[in-house]
Nucleic acid binder design. Sequence first.
DNA 1: TACGATTTGTCCGTATGTATA
DNA 2: ATATACATACGGACAAATCGT
Lengths: 246, 246
Amino acid sequence: MFHSASHDKMSTHIIRQVREAILKGQLLPGQSLPPEKDLITQFGVSKHTLREALRSLEAMGFIEIKRGAGGGPVVSEVDMETTRDSIANFLHFQNVSVRDLSEIRKIMEPYLARLAAERFSAQEIEKLEEIDRKCRKIFEKKKSVVGAKEEIDFHIFLAQASRNPVMVMVLDFVNSMLTDLKTNIKPDMEFSQHVLDSHQKIFEAIKAGDGDKAQECMLAHICDVERELEALRERDEKQAKIKQAV
Amino acid sequence: MFHSASHDKMSTHIIRQVREAILKGQLLPGQSLPPEKDLITQFGVSKHTLREALRSLEAMGFIEIKRGAGGGPVVSEVDMETTRDSIANFLHFQNVSVRDLSEIRKIMEPYLARLAAERFSAQEIEKLEEIDRKCRKIFEKKKSVVGAKEEIDFHIFLAQASRNPVMVMVLDFVNSMLTDLKTNIKPDMEFSQHVLDSHQKIFEAIKAGDGDKAQECMLAHICDVERELEALRERDEKQAKIKQAV
DNA sequence: TACGATTTGTCCGTATGTATA
DNA sequence: ATATACATACGGACAAATCGT
């Protein structure tokens, strides 16, 4: 049996059409779509149906909708946050451990540290140093770098050494998920001090253009973080058991 | 300044509440949400508003909505397809090349082939052989394995050697994006034959428990595919130029 | 500051299609 | 086969936000 197109939900038709127009480049990011009332007539559906379709497209990150005069639906590039959230939602059901995230880091980040040491321009080295300086300032004020955007930025910026957007994306969500775990575990000052020291060593190897050493220091750093987080997690579990017993 | 809750859109409140309930485990996959009319009264919104929220949650993969008696919104695990699509949408705007995808494969897949050789049980080896057999059957019928689900399955199944869901996910979308590129390029029979030969070598190394060799063969396989795809792409570009000139 | 124009956000009422029992 | 429960779809009205004058 064949299903006639009209058997599907109307909104899925609209979603598919707009989505394909964007992916084919017929609609470019920044361009405005016609306002609701025009789209209603163009697609021949009711306001209710059209708005459902726009909501879905918005959830997928394809459009943003602004209210008021001159507003309306605007095509936008699907951004990293939308994608990161989607990945995080998926992995939430997959029982991801610190070990899983660290395993990926151990494979990829030492490679990237080496590339950075071999490829970074003077400008890029300066930018990396600035990120590191910001980390230190945050530590001095808050006595922690955990959850600090700059602490992740250090790693993401290295990923950009690869000039590979897929690599950047993977490192982005791996590091951001790890940070989420960290903020639950609430590491101590010592942990943050170790992180800053490790970053320092990695930075110096990169600045010296020493690929071998950068690779080696990065691997050691990731292993350290994994070990310390595991230890802290076990400590928390024990405390939880004691509390439960009381 | 604090924003009063009433400043945001009603649907975002509903989305946030349901989303958090699911992520906290208060709502488990498989559970039904109350039907529309009950949710309307619970949240104190209109049909239209509620449905927009449900559409967004559906687009994010958190719920599925079934029609008819006994239907309604059902909580579901966010699945790989939803996530894969989201990633593909994001990377569409990032100019991803065969080289970018291959770079990730070169880092991860040889590592995974080694793990498979070291860890796979007899059952798993048998399963892998069956996947390979299916690939060959498809090749004999269609004279190609490009775009065949089984050809990706070979790589994904190896990723499962890591018992690492993040690894499986990364390999899933990298391989599926590469396959999308392949189907556009339309490789010849020779290409498919090379793929099958490489898979054979990798399989034999894994079966023999030879981690070194499995790692080495996998790296060679990925480099081969990258090189051949690049060559085919250049060929297509030249043909396009000739056509344009005429 | 204020007002009008534009455009989305929200609500109500009603009718129709679809799956289950 | 009929009834029931549920989502899907349409139209009209008013509120709220934003922009320009």
